[in-house]
């Protein structure tokens, strides 16, 4: 039985099959989550090679620990939780914890060299947003991604980050404010 057999199976059922040591089910689950987990880890770790090592660790941990999934949360939240844990382990191990862009320092980043907002095209807007994002702290980048791309609820984010729901709301609010501020600095403020 190959991964295509599991094409239309829900994430919880896939994980149940993985718990029963079904390697094909795992392959399907991996296909669904590889990019999302890798990019989420890249939000936390700026080194692509180290990020890939973390994904290997995280996904093999998913394989080994699938039986411990309780279905009380979404599969995505559970997998991201494992990936986050592994990412912080890697940061501690490699001593890169302090290389992040701090929140206060982010405001002091040099301005981008791109053209004014009136002349940028769609691609450039994306590029500016990407650069503005990079100036944010890891925590702000993380919550923005979890809300707008992974579409997690504030309760799920609170559980994943082990912080109160009110802190989630304020963190997202300030992250959005910082991003808006950076986009203005880069000359694209009037678009947001």
């Amino acid at each position: 039985m190959d991964a295509t057999h599991w094409q239309d199976v829900s994430d919880p059922d896939l994980l149940a099959a993985v718990a029963a040591s079904d390697a094909a089910a795992f392959e399907r689950l991996y296909q669904l989550y590889e990019k999302r987990v890798y990019q989420y880890v890249c939000t936390l770790i700026y080194d692509p090679t180290l990020a890939e090592e973390v994904v290997v660790d995280a996904m093999t941990a998913v394989w080994r620990g699938a039986g411990s999934f309780s279905r009380s949360s979404r599969v995505s939240t559970w997998i991201f939780g494992i990936a986050r844990h592994k990412a912080f382990d890697a940061l501690r191990r490699t001593g890169r914890h302090h290389n992040d862009v701090a929140l206060d320092e982010a405001l002091e980043m040099p301005h981008a060299q791109e053209s004014p907002a009136e002349s940028v095209n769609r691609k450039q807007v994306t590029s500016l947003t990407q650069q503005a994002l990079k100036t944010l702290s890891r925590e702000h980048q993380e919550v923005l991604r979890l809300v707008f791309y992974e579409e997690l609820s504030y309760e799920e984010i609170a559980e994943l980050l082990s912080i109160p729901t009110n802190t989630v709301k304020t963190r997202v609010y300030y992250a959005k404010q910082r991003l808006k501020h950076q986009l203005k600095q880069f000359g694209q403020g009037e678009r947001v």
Partner: peptide
């Protein structure tokens, strides 16, 4: 912002 972030991601 949601649209822009989606494009970035």
């Amino acid at each position: 912002l949601n649209v822009q972030l989606h494009e970035v991601y």
